[in-house]
Design a protein around this nucleic acid. Structure first.
Lengths: 189, 189
DNA sequence: CATAAAAACTAATGGTATTAGGTAAAAAAC
DNA sequence: GTTTTTTACCTAATACCATTAGTTTTTATG
């Protein structure tokens, strides 16, 4: 019996594609085993357990998001950079809900330390360069922005903005304008 | 064989307690059946399926959050009210992670329409009264605040703030101060 | 009391995840 | 090239969760 040629990387890649196309909840060892034409137990030669696989997919999702963020911010500064970064978050959540959810899977501190999440924070710091913030305020800003981007995307996707006017796009713009002004007011003092 | 005296309300109540003590992931029909000493299939006389039960627990969690919010905002105005409201969110997430997660379970539009989520938005609007915002800006503000409260709590609980200084409490204060100033600058124009 | 309705049970089915031991394929050693 | 070792895959077993359909028992109703 020839080997299916599986590997950890292949499983994680296929897992990410599955989560993206069918949703994170559809990502199961059983589904992947079927896809590769092997018995489920065979996957344990490559991943420790189901959570190990999911963490791998989460890391990949974070990398994908970080890649898009890097690209969006390149060559941009100030408000333009922040807005570009924000749009990446919101668009990623809208275009890739399965990966967006995967990216939120709990990671160990070691896993998180080497992840796209850290790159994302770095990209956000770079985007803030033009605001001339103090060291501490840079961190506060990253946390403020990150919180808004994540919270808004989740609430929007959860339908919380569906039954009220004005359109969410306006609130998003409003929020970004407000945060930009806030950052400007925090300039080194 | 005497009946166990189950009811939908009892199951949802017990489910909320279980989610609160063991985490939302521990909330299963099987666990509740064991707790009440009945066979799992018996629960279907009271709930449609597992998701129906979870939605019920979600609604209860939202009500609990809304109750705390109402209480915290009562007798308060302006920044004090907003800060009190924010603290409720963050504290709820920290003290009741299982219920916090339950509150985020996807609900149908009908379910959401009658939920603590709507009460929460109303309470937030009330908290904003002192800022004298326009109708539209009130909605923008609710969405901005809600996004920050949710996003910050999730990132904090997910460990995103663990490996960097300053302390998250400072960023939280900074964020609230910033949002307060923003709202003040939005006063009817 | 008899009947109807509803709750609880039984049996069956389907699905997911993990472990331990065995076998065959591939890699490494000679 | 052959032999030995390692590793990937399978089998069998186990555990757990969820749902459906039909049956039985309990409770409510007339």
């Amino acid at each position: 019996m020839p080997r299916a040629g599986l590997s950890r990387e292949k499983l994680i890649e296929a897992g990410a594609v599955l989560a993206d196309s069918e949703g994170f909840a559809a990502l199961t060892l059983a589904a992947l085993a079927r896809q590769f034409g092997v018995k489920l137990a065979s996957l344990y030669a490559h991943v420790r357990n189901s959570d190990d696989l999911k963490a791998g997919v989460a890391l990949r999702a974070l990398d994908a998001l970080a890649d898009e963020a890097d690209e969006a911010v390149a060559g941009r500064a100030g408000k333009e950079a922040v807005v570009a970064l924000a749009e990446v978050h919101r668009r990623f959540a809208g275009d890739h809900p399965g990966l967006f959810e995967a990216a939120r899977f709990p990671l160990s501190p070691e896993q998180a330390a080497g992840s796209g999440g850290v790159r994302l924070a770095r990209t956000m710091l770079a985007a803030l360069r033009d605001y001339g913030l103090s060291e501490a305020d840079q961190v506060h800003a990253v946390r403020l922005l990150g919180s808004f981007f994540l919270g808004f995307s989740l609430l929007e996707r959860g339908g919380s903005f569906s039954h009220s006017q004005p359109e969410p796009d306006l609130s998003w713009q409003c929020g970004l304008d407000a945060l930009d002004l806030t950052l400007k007011s925090w300039m080194k003092k």
